[in-house]
C-alpha cells in the first residue's frame, strides 16, 4: 500500500545553495517513516531525474541526515539564479514535484 509523502513529511522545501544549485529538503514527522524511506531507498536519482526531467548527472547529491530525520537532494540549476530567463531567484518554489511522491 502506498502512502503520499506529504503524509509522512512535516517539511518539503527547496532553496538556493548558492546561485548554481538548488537544494531540496524532506524532513519526516517521525523516525519510523524516515528510516523506512531511507532503508528502501525510495528517494533516489532515478526518481528525481524523472520528476524534474533532468539527467541523473545533474543531481549533485542525495544525502540522509539522521539528526533532522531528513533527506536532502541537491541538483544543478538549469539556469543560474538571476540570469536571463531564470524564474525563481531564491529557488524557494521548486519543491512541488516532490509533493507527488508516493511511498
Amino acid at each position: 500500500m502506498s502512502v503520499p509523502l506529504t503524509e509522512l513529511a512535516e517539511v518539503i522545501r527547496s532553496k538556493n545553495s548558492g546561485p548554481y544549485e538548488l537544494t531540496m529538503d524532506i524532513i519526516f514527522k517521525d523516525f519510523v517513516s524516515y528510516e523506512k524511506v531511507k532503508q528502501n531507498r525510495v528517494i533516489n536519482k532515478k526518481l528525481i531525474s524523472r520528476l524534474y526531467q533532468i539527467p541523473e548527472g545533474d543531481i549533485s547529491s542525495i544525502i540522509e541526515f539522521d539528526p533532522a530525520r531528513a533527506i536532502k537532494i541537491t541538483i544543478k540549476r538549469p539556469i543560474v539564479a538571476g540570469a536571463v530567463g531564470e524564474s525563481d531567484v531564491y529557488g524557494a518554489q521548486q519543491h512541488a514535484p516532490l509533493l507527488t511522491i508516493e511511498v
Binding site: K15, D25, A70
Partner: peptide, 17 residues
C-alpha cells in the same frame, strides 16, 4: 527544538555534514 535546529543545519547548504 532538536528538529528545528537540526533542520536548520540543512538550510541553504548542499551537504549538512
Amino acid at each position: 527544538t532538536v528538529t528545528s535546529i537540526a533542520a536548520h543545519t540543512l538550510y541553504e547548504k548542499n551537504n549538512p555534514y
